[in-house]
Design a protein around this nucleic acid. Structure first.
Length: 511
RNA sequence: GGCCCAUUCGUCUAGUGGACUAGGAUGUAGCCCUCUCAAGGCUAAGACACGGGUUCGAACCCCGUAUGGGCCA
C-alpha cells in the first residue's frame, strides 16, 4: 500500500485567494488524515503573468492558516526542485521522448499560418475549430525540409482522433469525453518552456503524487492528461475535482477582485485581506473546511484535529456553492469570544495601536482597556472593530454632534442639564470609583429624579463616550475614570445650556 | 455555440432506496433578558427544480426538460 502524496501547485501570478486556500486546505487535510505527504510546488512557467510579491504572499497565507508543507520551497525534500522553472531539462527530455516514440510531434506552423487557418475555419463556420493537425501528417521529407530551414517548432501531443476516454473522479464518479473534441495541445513551446499540461503531468509523476485534489475548472483537461499518462506509460493518479466557489451572490466563479454585495458588504477574495481585517486563522480554517465539505452535518465549530480525523474525499460536495460570507462573520465572532482575555488582548494590540495611534506598550498596560476587554469581546466580529468600542478612553475631546441627541422625548434641555449636573455631583461624591458603586448611585438618582433609566443612562453614555452604543455603562464609566467622566458631563451640561449655537466640542483636560 | 459537471430552506450543508411529518448552521422575524449595542435563551417562517420512468416503496437509481456553473471557441 503506497502512502498518499498530494500537492498544492499554485502559480505566482497572484495572491492566495479563497479558492486556492480551500484547495490547499483539502489537500492538506487529506495528507494529514492519511498520514501522507503534502507537497507544495510552484508552477512558475508563465513568466509573462508573474506578479511580484505573490510567492511571498502564498507562503505567508498558507502558514497563517496553519497549512504547513512537508516538501517544497524553503523546506526542500527528496523530489525537488519544487519550482518548475528549475526543472526545464526534465520537461524537454520527456517531450523529446514522446516525439521519439510517436506520441507527439513537432509542429512548425507559424503564428501567421495558424491565424490563417482559424480565419478559414471561421469562414466555413466549422463547428470544431482549433489546430487542424497539419504537421502531424507531414511526410518524412516535408519534415526534413522544415528542419533544414531551421524553422522554430513546438511539440504537440498526438491525441487519438476517435473513440472515448473514461476516467474516474473520486468525487464525481466516471466521466467520459469524446476524443474527437480534444486538441493536439502544445506540450512544449518554441522557446523550450513547457505548457501547463506537460509540466503538470511530468511533475506529478516524478514527485510520485498519488491524489490530485484541485479545482473543478481543471476537470475538462483531464482527458488530455489521461492521454499523456497513457503515452508515457505511467499510471495516472486519483483525480478529485473540488467544486468551484461561487461569488456570495451565487453568480459566477469567485473572481480575483473583491465583490460588493447589494447591502454594501465588501467581500474580499484574498487571504491576506481577511488577515488584515482581523479574522482569526483558526476561524478561517474552520470556515473553509465547511465550504464544500461538512464534518457530520451537525457540528459547525471544530478544531484541526477533529477535521483531520473526519476528512474524507468521497464526502466532498460535487456541486458548486456560493461563498457564505455571513457565516464566516458569525464564526469569527464565535472564535473571538472563545479567546482567553490575554490572548485576545495580544491579538488586538496591533489593530488598536494603528486605529488609536497609541504605542502598543501603553495599550498593553492600560487598565481601562483591560476592564472593558470582556465586553468588547462579545461585541466584535473582527479584531479591527475593537477600536470603536474603546476609542473614547484615549481621546481628550468628546464631540457630541448635536446636543439635541442628549435629550430623549419628553424632556427639555434644562431638565436634562440638571439631571446630568446631579449625576456629576453624585459621582464626584462617591467614596469608591467602582462599577457597582457607580451603578447603585446612578440608579438611586434615576429614582430620585423620577426618570426612566434609559433616559439618563443614554445621555450619560453619549456625553462621556460620544456614542450611542458602548459596553455596559457603569463599567465604561469606571474605565474612563472619575475625573474625565465628571469633566465630560460638565461639558455636556454646558452644551445643553448653550443649545442653539450649533454642535459643541468640549475640549477636556489631560486624560 | 460545443463539450463536461451540477441541481435539498435566501446561503453553507446532513442525507448514499424504507428510521424524512427532510435534520443542523447561518441569515431573517418575534419573544425573553436588558442602561445602549451585543452575547445568550426560546419560538417561527423557510428546501428535495420540473416531467416521466424503475421499485411494494425514491430527495436518493434511470431518462428527458429547465436552470446554474466550468472549460474551450
Amino acid at each position: 500500500m503506497s502512502t498518499v502524496r498530494v500537492r498544492f501547485a499554485p502559480s505566482p501570478t497572484g495572491y492566495l485567494h479563497i479558492g486556492g486556500a480551500r484547495t490547499a486546505l483539502f489537500n492538506w487535510l487529506y495528507a494529514r488524515h492519511t498520514g501522507g505527504t503534502f507537497v507544495l510546488r510552484i508552477e512558475d512557467t508563465d513568466r509573462a503573468r508573474f506578479v511580484p510579491g505573490s510567492l511571498e504572499d502564498i507562503f505567508t497565507s498558507l502558514r497563517w492558516l496553519g497549512l504547513d508543507w512537508d516538501e517544497g520551497p524553503e523546506v526542500g525534500g527528496p523530489y525537488g526542485p519544487y519550482y518548475q522553472s528549475e526543472r526545464l531539462p526534465l520537461y524537454r527530455q520527456w517531450a523529446d521522448w514522446l516525439v521519439a516514440h510517436g506520441k507527439a510531434y513537432r509542429c512548425y506552423c507559424t503564428p501567421a499560418e495558424l491565424e490563417q487557418m482559424r480565419e478559414a475555419q471561421r469562414a466555413r463556420k466549422q463547428e470544431t475549430t482549433g489546430y487542424d493537425r497539419r504537421c502531424r501528417h507531414l511526410s518524412p521529407a516535408e519534415r526534413a525540409a522544415r528542419e533544414a530551414e531551421g524553422r522554430p517548432w513546438v511539440v504537440r501531443l498526438a491525441v487519438p482522433e476517435t473513440g472515448q476516454v473514461t476516467f474516474h473522479d473520486a468525487i464525481r464518479g466516471d466521466i467520459t469525453f469524446d476524443n474527437a473534441r480534444l486538441q493536439d495541445v502544445i506540450l512544449l513551446k518554441s522557446d523550450g518552456w513547457p505548457t501547463y499540461h506537460l509540466a503538470n503531468v511530468v511533475d506529478d509523476h516524478f514527485m510520485a503524487i498519488t491524489h490530485i485534489l484541485r479545482g473543478d475548472e481543471w476537470l475538462s483537461s483531464v482527458p488530455l492528461h489521461w492521454h499523456l499518462y497513457a503515452a508515457f506509460g505511467w499510471e495516472p493518479p486519483v483525480w478529485a475535482h473540488l467544486p468551484v466557489i461561487l461569488n456570495p451572490n451565487g453568480q459566477g466563479k469567485m473572481s480575483k477582485r473583491e465583490i460588493i454585495m447589494p447591502d454594501g458588504l465588501v467581500v474580499p477574495v484574498f487571504i491576506h485581506q481577511y488577515r488584515e481585517m482581523g479574522y482569526l486563522p483558526e476561524a478561517m480554517f474552520n470556515f473553509l473546511c465547511g465550504v464544500g465539505w461538512a464534518l457530520d452535518g451537525f457540528t459547525e465549530i471544530y478544531d484541526r484535529a477533529t477535521a483531520i480525523a473526519a476528512f474524507d474525499i468521497a464526502h466532498v460536495q460535487a456541486s458548486p456553492g456560493a461563498f457564505p460570507a455571513d457565516k464566516l462573520e458569525w464564526m469569527n465572532g464565535v472564535y473571538i469570544r472563545r479567546l482567553a482575555p490575554d490572548d485576545l488582548l495580544e491579538r488586538l494590540l496591533p489593530y488598536l495601536a494603528r486605529s488609536l495611534d497609541q504605542p502598543i506598550e501603553v495599550l498593553r498596560q492600560h487598565e481601562g482597556l483591560r476592564l472593558l476587554l470582556p465586553f468588547v469581546q462579545e461585541r466584535i466580529k473582527k479584531l479591527s472593530e475593537a477600536a470603536d468600542y474603546v476609542d473614547y478612553l484615549f481621546r481628550r475631546e468628546i464631540v457630541v454632534p448635536d446636543p439635541a441627541e442628549l435629550i430623549p422625548n419628553g424632556m427639555t434641555a434644562e431638565t436634562m442639564a440638571t439631571a446630568l449636573e446631579r449625576a456629576a455631583q453624585t459621582l464626584e461624591a462617591l467614596p469608591a470609583w467602582e462599577e457597582q458603586a457607580i451603578e447603585t448611585a446612578l440608579r438611586d438618582l434615576v429614582a430620585t429624579l423620577g426618570l426612566k433609566s434609559g433616559q439618563l443612562f443614554g445621555a450619560i453614555r453619549l456625553a462621556t463616550t460620544g456614542k450611542k452604543v458602548s459596553p455596559p455603562l457603569f463599567v465604561t464609566l469606571q474605565a474612563i475614570g472619575r475625573e474625565q467622566v465628571c469633566a465630560r458631563l460638565a461639558a455636556a451640561v454646558a452644551g445643553l445650556r448653550a443649545r442653539g449655537r450649533g454642535p459643541t466640542a468640549a475640549v477636556l483636560g489631560e486624560a
